[in-house]
Structure formats: structure tokens, C-alpha cells
């Protein structure tokens, strides 16, 4: 049960440790500000895909809330 949590914690801890030296200055955000670089780009496609995979597979969520909302599984 705690396998996923442990794995995640280690990765996140490693990530956090390196975070302070990463990143850009505000004037270097030209590419990051583009719509296709948004982490939620293609949100409609992702929502439609989530509904399909939620209905047809045994696991869901991860990107956002796993939630209910559908009697399809």
C-alpha cells in the first residue's frame, strides 16, 4: 500500500532539493507562456480520454482527482 507513497516521496524530496537552483527569470518565460507549454493544454482532449479510460480500465486519476461522477465503472 505504501509503495507508491514511498516512491513518490523520494522523488519529490530529490526534486525539492534541486528546485532552488532551477528555473528562469521572469523575462525568460516566452516559451513557457505559450499555450502548448501549459500543463493543462488540451484539457478537453484529456477530459474525454479520462472518461473513456475510467469506463474501460480498472484505475483512474493521477493527473487530477480520481473522483466518481460516472456509473460507467
Amino acid at each position: 500500500m505504501f509503495k507508491v507513497i514511498k516512491f513518490s516521496m523520494v522523488l519529490v524530496a530529490l526534486g525539492m532539493a534541486g528546485c532552488s537552483s532551477l528555473g528562469v527569470q521572469p523575462w525568460e518565460r516566452d516559451l513557457l507562456a505559450k499555450e502548448e507549454m501549459s500543463l493543462s493544454a488540451g484539457a478537453t482532449d484529456l477530459a474525454l480520454d479520462d472518461h473513456i479510460y475510467f469506463s474501460k480500465e480498472g484505475t483512474s486519476g493521477g493527473r487530477g482527482f480520481a473522483g466518481g461522477g460516472c456509473g460507467c465503472n
Partner: peptide, 30 residues
């Protein structure tokens, strides 16, 4: 019926001008 509680912990990190990453840990109780 069923009740679902979800908790999502997230970390978003800009690596450089071209690269952005995201990490999530989710817990769900149904």
C-alpha cells in the same frame, strides 16, 4: 451509494526556459 475522498499533493517545477515538470501524489478513499 458511495463516497469518494481524494487528496492530491502537487509539485510543478520550471527547469529552464524550455522545460517544465509536474509531480503529483494522489490518495483516494472510496
Amino acid at each position: 451509494g458511495k463516497d469518494t475522498v481524494d487528496v492530491v499533493l502537487g509539485l510543478t517545477q520550471v527547469i529552464n526556459r524550455r522545460w517544465i515538470t509536474q509531480f503529483n501524489i494522489s490518495l483516494s478513499e472510496v
